[in-house]
Nucleic acid binder design. Structure first.
Length: 429
RNA sequence: GUGGCCGUAGCUCAGUAGGUUAGAGCGCCAGGUUGUGGCCCUGGAGGUCGGGGGUUCAAUUCCCCUCGGUCACCCCA
């Protein structure tokens, strides 16, 4: 609009209060903090520990971890070079967390590592509803356990978090991609199936026959979806161990009361997934309906150069979509600012009194605010109201002379005179 | 990367079949209440009508370009 600087396309400022721009609500900082607190609370119930890794990572880590042929790596990375080092703004956090886990030998700490993260990610996509170039994720990486218990543990925290955040209208889809051997068998079968139908496929699907045939499964083209009905199913290619794992996961989800639908066409866009994959979607989100997605990634460690295979499962979830879902669910997206005490000071001497009194009360743990501009009483009262002050203490020349101040309760409007000598004890209660 | 839609006050939006001082609601500030908020009343500030070029006696309005926003495709959180 004006000629001044603006935030970069696809990014947004989080202001103290929520803002609505062209119908899109960007929650204020208080909302973000509140959501983060609740997420941390649920994580703690499960014993997940927070990990914070750098936003900048070696390009090679992401390229090898996420997969060279994925959209993320091939066209969506914010990457640059300095000297002979190549950097990326991380497009996701799973590979970085695995990197950190391996680098710091967290496997030597005994047991499994139950990690969670909260932070920004970057992808150079064209922004649209629910999609930004800098977006914010939270997620879980549960590393070191290969059994179905771990899968269900990861899915459970995820479901619990959405419950606690008041997002109830969701659908959990799950699938199993098996391991590399079943997948390559399946890939072959899929190729054989689609080869004769080549002419029916879209251009992108045809090129995927070469690069990544599995990705044809999540096509949105109607005609292709019809073709998929008779296509071979991945489940039929799982080996007995893979099948048993998947069955166990489904049984256990039933045991803990998490409803889900099995979706044989659920494949995820990142190379590192194997076996269990899942996605939580919300019908209120529009085109970008995925609230969270995840799966098992037992082969990631080797893909990024580790000697051994490291079993792991996790999910990543988007804050922006979470907030959209919360808002669509009728949740209040405004948490008002509030303060305990507002000092209305009139005149220089009263201001000095307010300053020293505020210092004393603040160190006692009360939130105390007073006017910094020497404004009129009316203006100060109005501000006290805006800040939802519980109590206002008024002091001017009269009060200084008489040695007592006026204390007003803002909710009831009750007022009383309190001597300067005893004012501290009143506040202490 | 491709396509549709949209740019008028801080926000949500009217408006002019091209015409002289561009409006409303909310918000903000002030007064009504010379020291008392939230409700009400009154007033005020705030706009190069996104930017540039063109057509015209005259452009916020019509045309072109550009920038920005938004939605969708691809894909993902």
């Amino acid at each position: 609009m004006s000629k001044g600087f603006r935030n970069i396309t696809g990014t947004f400022d989080i202001l103290p209060d929520s803002q609505t721009i062209d119908g899109t609500t960007i929650p204020g900082a208080r909302i973000w903090v509140d959501a983060e607190c609740r997420i941390r609370g649920v994580m703690a119930l499960y014993g997940f520990q927070e990990i914070r890794t750098p936003v900048l990572e070696p390009t090679e880590l992401i390229a090898r971890g996420v997969g060279q042929d994925t959209d993320i790596v091939s066209k969506e990375m914010f990457a640059f070079e300095r000297g002979d080092t190549r950097y990326v703004m991380r497009p996701e956090v799973t590979a970085p967390v695995m990197r950190s886990y391996l680098q710091h030998h967290l496997d030597q700490k005994g047991g499994v590592q139950k990690l969670f993260y909260i932070g920004p990610c970057f992808r150079a996509e064209r922004p649209q509803k629910g999609r930004y170039r800098q977006f914010h994720q939270f997620g879980v990486e549960l590393i070191g356990a290969e059994g179905a218990l771990a899968d269900v543990e990861a899915i459970s925290v995820m479901m619990d978090i959405y419950q606690k955040l008041g997002v109830h209208d969701t659908r959990l889809r799950i699938n199993s991609l098996g391991d590399e051997t079943c997948r390559s068998k399946y890939r072959k079968a899929l190729l054989e199936y689609f080869e004769p139908l080549r002419s029916e496929l879209s251009e992108t699907s045809r090129s995927r026959l070469k690069t990544n045939p599995l990705r044809i499964l999540d096509t949105k083209v109607e005609k292709e979806r019809a073709l998929l009905k008779n296509a071979p199913r991945l489940v039929d290619f799982l080996d007995s161990a893979g099948r048993a794992h998947f069955t166990l996961v489904k049984d256990m989800l039933g045991d803990v009361g998490i409803p889900f639908v099995e979706d044989p066409f659920l494949v995820r866009g990142l190379d590192y997934y194997s076996h269990t994959t899942f996605e939580l979607e919300s019908p209120v989100l529009g085109a970008q309906s995925a609230l969270a997605g995840g799966g098992r990634y037992d082969f990631l460690a080797k893909a990024i150069g580790h000697r051994h295979q490291v079993p792991a499962i996790g999910f990543a979830a988007g804050f922006e979509r979470l907030f959209q879902a919360m808002k669509a669910g009728g949740q209040n997206m405004d948490i008002p600012q509030h303060t305990q005490i507002y000092l209305v000071a009139l005149g220089d001497e009263a201001q000095r009194w307010a300053q020293t009194t505020a210092a004393r009360w603040r160190s006692a743990g009360h939130s105390v605010i007073y006017d910094l501009k020497g404004r009129s009483m009316k203006a100060q009262m109005r501000e006290a109201n805006r800040l939802n002050a519980g109590m206002v203490v008024i002091i001017g020349s009269d009060e200084l002379a008489s040695g007592s101040v006026v204390v007003r309760r803002m909710d009831s409007g009750e007022q009383q005179n309190v001597s300067l000598a005893s004012i501290d004890s009143l506040v202490a209660t």
